[in-house]
């Protein structure tokens, strides 16, 4: 916990050093840093659950794309009300997670392989369902022209801000999910079982834990988080891009790791992921307000990832 906080502190100090003529001190900068990090953060919450079991979920980025497309179609094309479209999109994400989880649990595929397959598959689904085009408010008419419709109210609501414009809804959603997942992981018997499974699966099985069910549920929860992220992503972009979420799985994993959760499983918690999310969010923001070009930004992110993980290494006796 302390070390994750140190990483965040360093990033904030970095921001103060390179404040880009005071841009770092504006409220808007912080709000936007959090807003942009929130989608990643939501993914990282689900990812934490899976990583605690000693697994990994590479499919979340594709599930973001798939659910974003589906959610946009339901909302823009078919004008479904939110109380049908939101649960449907969530169910799609959960189903994807359930398939990954089932592959991990029954044929005992390695999580890396099972979710790699799901990653490719879900991306293909997104392209199939959308016909390979972005699902946006520009509806193609038959004769090659477009007809424009209004941005759905639901998208505006999800992408709105509360507290006099100081806090994005997406950030609120992220914090709520982090809190819920954190409580489940720390206090619910399921969370405790996830740690046991990640620590020593055989001992957990022999202690009579429902190893398969708990693991499966972790992947379902991860898919669910990806669906929430997909809904948010669609609302922010006001469209369902079948390519949306590409590479997000790596950012989500990076967040979990920067927080200090062990990739081998059995250790870590949601508070760390929260700190990791904020760290990554600020990092991106600082680089962007200083107008660091994309190429340099990627390189710097890589360096900082390694540095953060090195500072967090547990001291071994």
């Amino acid at each position: 916990m302390l070390r994750a906080a140190v990483a965040l502190l360093i990033v904030i100090l970095l921001g103060m050093a390179f404040h880009a003529d005071g841009a770092f001190y504006k409220v808007g900068t912080h709000r936007d840093a959090l807003r942009q990090a929130s989608v990643y953060g939501i993914l990282a919450c689900g990812m934490t659950l899976v990583i605690v079991t000693g697994g990994i979920d590479l499919a979340v980025g594709s599930i973001v794309g798939f659910t974003a497309v589906c959610f946009s179609m339901m909302t823009i094309w078919w004008s479904w009300p939110w109380w049908i479209s939101v649960p449907s999109a969530l169910a799609i994400g959960a189903a994807c997670g359930a398939v990954s989880g089932a592959l991990v649990v029954w044929p005992r595929l390695q999580p890396f392989i099972a979710t790699l397959a799901m990653m490719v598959f879900a991306r293909g689904m997104a392209k199939t369902v959308s016909g390979g085009v972005k699902v946006s408010t520009a509806l193609p008419t038959g004769d090659g022209t477009f007809r424009y419709v209004q941005v759905p109210e639901l998208f505006r609501t999800i992408d709105s801000r509360i507290l006099f414009g100081n806090l994005s809804m997406v950030t609120v959603v992220f914090l709520a999910i982090a809190a819920a997942a954190g409580v489940l992981l720390a206090r619910h018997i399921w969370g405790r079982d996830l740690y046991a499974i990640g620590g020593n699966e055989e001992a957990a099985r022999l202690s009579g834990l429902a190893v398969r069910r708990s693991k499966l549920l972790a992947y379902v929860a991860c898919g669910l988080c990806a669906a929430v992220a997909g809904i948010c992503q669609a609302a922010q972009e006001q469209q369902g891009d079948p390519e949306a979420g590409g590479g997000y799985e790596l950012t989500a994993i990076a967040i979990v790791v920067i927080g200090g959760t062990n990739l081998m499983g059995g250790r870590g918690h949601m508070g760390l992921t929260l700190l990791g999310t904020i760290t990554i969010g600020y990092l991106e923001k600082i680089l962007s307000i200083n107008a660091v070009p994309e190429a340099g930004r990627l390189m710097l992110t890589g360096v900082i990832l390694v540095a953060a993980v090195l500072t967090q290494r547990r001291r071994r006796f």
Binding site: R187, A196, G199, A203, A204, L209, G266
Partner: peptide, 22 residues
Amino acid sequence: GLVLSMSVTANCLMAGRRPVWR
């Protein structure tokens, strides 16, 4: 036998009946 990465308490209470909320 044990999950070495977990606390003594957690290991002691791993098997048998456990409340849903810790």
